[in-house]
Design a protein around this nucleic acid. Structure first.
Lengths: 162, 162
DNA sequence: ATATTACGGATATTGGATATCCCTATTTGG
DNA sequence: CCAAATAGGGATATCCAATATCCGTAATAT
C-alpha cells in the first residue's frame, strides 16, 4: 500500500501556494517547472484540488491556482483526501459471511471486529494528518530551507505569478 | 491507496489460529473453505506469515499452520507488515531537488518536512495497529459472535485440525 | 506406499497509477 | 477586437502491482 506520487506533488504545490501573496495565481506550467514534474499529469492532481474546493482558479494568461482558504485552515488531510479519495484504506469484504457454519441468510448486527480495528488505525492516520496545517509547514520550511534558496524561489514564483 | 485483500485474509486466518488448541495445525484448505477464499492464492498470504515467523508449519496430512507465539504477543501490525511489507506508505521522491533555483549539486541536511509529516502519520497508523493483539480480538469476537456460530465454527475447525 | 501438505517458481489476467495528447471555453494583454 | 495563454475534461496508451492459477518438489502422516 503506497500513496500515489500525486499526493506528494499536491502537497508541494500547496506549500508553494501558501506563500503566494493574496489574490495572485500560479499556473500549472510554473508549478510543474518548479518541481520538475510532467505538466499535463500534474494538472490532474491540481484539478483534484480544485474539485475538492481547496483551490480557486482563473483562466487566461496570468491565470492559475491560489488557495481557497488561509493556510491556517488547510490541513495535510485535506490535500491527501482530495487526491487519494476519502474512502478507508481497509476495505472489508465481510468474508466471515462465507463461513459454512452459519445459517443461510444470517445477518450481522455489527461490522466485523477486524474491520473496526483497521478503521480505527485508519482514523489515527487521518487524525495525525488533520493536525498539521500548511501554516505550520510554512513555518518549518522557513526555518529549515537555506535562506538563499528560499528567497530565490520566492522571487522565481513572484515573477511567474499572475 | 487500499490495502491488499490478502491483509484481510491473513487477519481472519490468524484470528482462527488464535483459538486453535496448543500444538494443533490447520491447513490452507480448511482456512480457505472456512473463509470462502481461493486456496492457492490464500496460500501465498500464509507463506508471508510463515516467512515473517508469525506461524509455524508442518507438512504431510494433518499438516498446516499454527501461531508461532501466544495471541497476547501477536499484534495486528505484525500481520499487516508481514503481508504489506514494512516500508512506509509515503515514498518521498525528493522533488524539491528539482527546484531550478537551487545551486547545482546542493545537498539537503534534513529530510523533506512534507515527508516527515507523512511519515509521522504513518507511524500513528502503525502505533494504533501495534496496540491491538489477537488475544483482545478473540475476547471481542467471543462477546460479539453468535454463540451458536462460535461453537459450530470451533467444532468445524477442530474436526479438520491436525 | 499412498495421499496430503507447505513451499516456491512460472505464468496469465486484471485494474489502477502514470503519462500524453487534443479539443473547448474562458480570459488576459496588446 | 484579436491572439496567446490558461484550466478543464475526454480519450488513449503504457506500465506495474495485485490477483489468481497451475505445477513440480520435498516432507510427513497413516
Amino acid at each position: 500500500m503506497i500513496l500515489k506520487s500525486q499526493v506528494e506533488w499536491a502537497l508541494h504545490c500547496c506549500a508553494i501556494l501558501s506563500s503566494l501573496p493574496e489574490g495572485r495565481f500560479l499556473s500549472t506550467k510554473a508549478l510543474a517547472e518548479l518541481h520538475g514534474l510532467p505538466k499535463e499529469y500534474l494538472s490532474k492532481a491540481l484539478q483534484s484540488l480544485s474539485h475538492a474546493g481547496l483551490v480557486h482558479t482563473t483562466l487566461g494568461p496570468s491565470g492559475g491556482y491560489r488557495l481557497a482558504r488561509p493556510p491556517e485552515q488547510l490541513t495535510f488531510l485535506d490535500v491527501v483526501e482530495a487526491v487519494e479519495g476519502e474512502g478507508p484504506t481497509f476495505v472489508c469484504q465481510n468474508i466471515r459471511a462465507n463461513n459454512p457454519c452459519r445459517p443461510q441468510g444470517y445477518c450481522e448486527s455489527t461490522p466485523c471486529a477486524i474491520a473496526r480495528t483497521m478503521w480505527q488505525a485508519d482514523e489515527a492516520w487521518r487524525t495525525a494528518l488533520r493536525k498539521v496545517t500548511f501554516a505550520e509547514l510554512a513555518k518549518t520550511l522557513e526555518q529549515e530551507v537555506s535562506p538563499q534558496i528560499w528567497a530565490g524561489t520566492f522571487e522565481w514564483v513572484l515573477k511567474r505569478a499572475g
